[in-house]
Design a protein around this nucleic acid. Sequence first.
RNA 1: UGAAUUAUAGUUUAAUGGUUAGAGCAUUAGCUUGUCGAGCUAAAAGUAUGAGUUCAAAUCUCAUUUAUUCAGCCA
Length: 581
Amino acid sequence: MLRTNTCGDLNVHDVGKIVKLAGWVQKNRNLGGMTFIDLRDRYGVTQLAFDMEINAELCDIARNLGREFVIQIVGEVIERSAKNLNIPTGEIEINVSKINVLNESKLPPFTIENKTDGGEELRMKYRYLDIRRDPIKNNLILRHRITSKTRNYLDLKGFCEIETPYLIKSTPEGARDFIVPSRVNPTQFYALPQSPQTFKQLLMVGGMDKYYQIVKCFRDEDLRSDRQPEFTQIDCEMSFVNQEDVLNTFEGLIINLFKEIKGIELSQFPRITYKEAISTYGTDKPDIRFGMKFVDLTNLCKGTEFNVFNEAELIIGINVKGGSSFSRKDIDKYTEFIRSSQINAKGLVYCKYNEDGSFKSSVDKFFNQEQLNNWSEACKSSPGDLILIIAGEESNTRNALSELRLLVAENLEIRNNSEFAPIWVVDFPLYEWDKESNRYHSMHHPFTSPKSSDIDHIKNNPNDLIADAYDLVINGNEIGGGSIRIHNKEIQKIIFEHLGFNQEEARNQFGFLMDAFEYGAPPHGGIAFGLDRLCSVIGGKESIRDFIAFPKNNSARDTMIDSPSYINHEQLDDLNLKLKN
RNA sequence: UGAAUUAUAGUUUAAUGGUUAGAGCAUUAGCUUGUCGAGCUAAAAGUAUGAGUUCAAAUCUCAUUUAUUCAGCCA
């Protein structure tokens, strides 16, 4: 070994030991008669000391070591005369007797320090340097701990980790596939899996009744700060279970992770139906760390001269605690926000409940104090509060108020990163109507089972069908989702009909699954967690990129290796491909 | 596909259309024996690319490229 210890583990108990260390030069402090070097590795920083009077030659070598040089040293652990109690190794230093330069380094393009001077773009290009910094390094370690604890937990519960193929078959449903041409089968293509969905169901048919996999999934869609073209799922499936069993098993997983990783004891997760979530938070992924629940004011607000309200399909408000101190300018900003092209609401009505008990509203002209008091009672607001109201078409209005609610909470700093509020959202609709293709789409996926109470009247209006599908939401982030699957081929057939597949299309795309279901498929269901998001939530960050060793940028490019890239004609020929341009 | 923002030294950033484009950090050199965000002195280093407007462009216009965020999209 090139080292006897790491740069993180020596302390005052090791004084007197002769040690060998290896690492990177973090910082070189030349004080003239003395020189100090901070030696860094993954585990920490240890100070090396050189004295002109003791060994001038060695001291001179040390002075010429630049940032990020890789060195190996031999020396004695000594107690410092001036201690630094801010770092774990701060009570000792190494009195170096020998230096071996293992590798020189060019000057790095940004400083490799916890508070780096480098911008995002530059750090991505030199990601291997960024990973040397604590913030990124610690995120990767956090991710490792999460996957490691997940494996332990699921193993203990009897789950078996099984790999499924990456080269599979393209299906037009869902997200766009990444396509891989087959050289051996000219003119044919594989697709990379959007998730191992069908394979895990086949494993259930295969009798592997508790499966999981920490697995890459691929979706060729446009990116966001919380979306990557390749991302990782903790993918799970169980046989002979109902929804209750799945929720309990995986609630246990999440509770265990928070306990082991954060030392936080989460209590039982609340549950909310999709319908309730939409009507009280305007979204299917509510952040429940703070109140500001929607209050329906539609009936209270109608019947005056104010036509905006009279014509509105829905009028809803939220009560902002202590919001009466918002200035005109603050409120104007919120109005501008909800009127922006992205949100596209018509306008914002406010009602301040002043400390003196009176009300001040932007629609004073149309509503008297008594009417405003009715609003206030409905919203349970007290003196000092502020009610914000949006009116208009139903779904757009809910969406606008939902975005506004998050923004106000953000500005009031009540979205606390060290607080975790998980919630199960259950009873999703089975389908949603797609205006573009003029047909139903599965809200979850085509193998999702309707609720057992709905199966009897499955031929009813498809719009009313509720699915045995569930999402886990933490702090407003969708962390996982799953469903009980259909294991009955008759029901599956009806679902395909609702979705507008004819027999032939269904066979063509999912024939292998339908075939498998002819041979005794067990009742089964499962869930998949987005590992990247789970890490970012536990790590308390907005972006998932910092929890991925080598992420891609907004345009799905890797700026470090510069991919994707062109390929040469021979490769294209081999693959039987011809470029359009 | 669309919208917004963005590009100045190695890096982070400043500069009413008008001085020699200014600073912090990093770098280099010198001084410095207890630093750990070391200190002091000095040096080197810059307007993304391509057109255009103007007496004059970092600054205004157009295009390209880059990055970020959002909408569409993501069963």
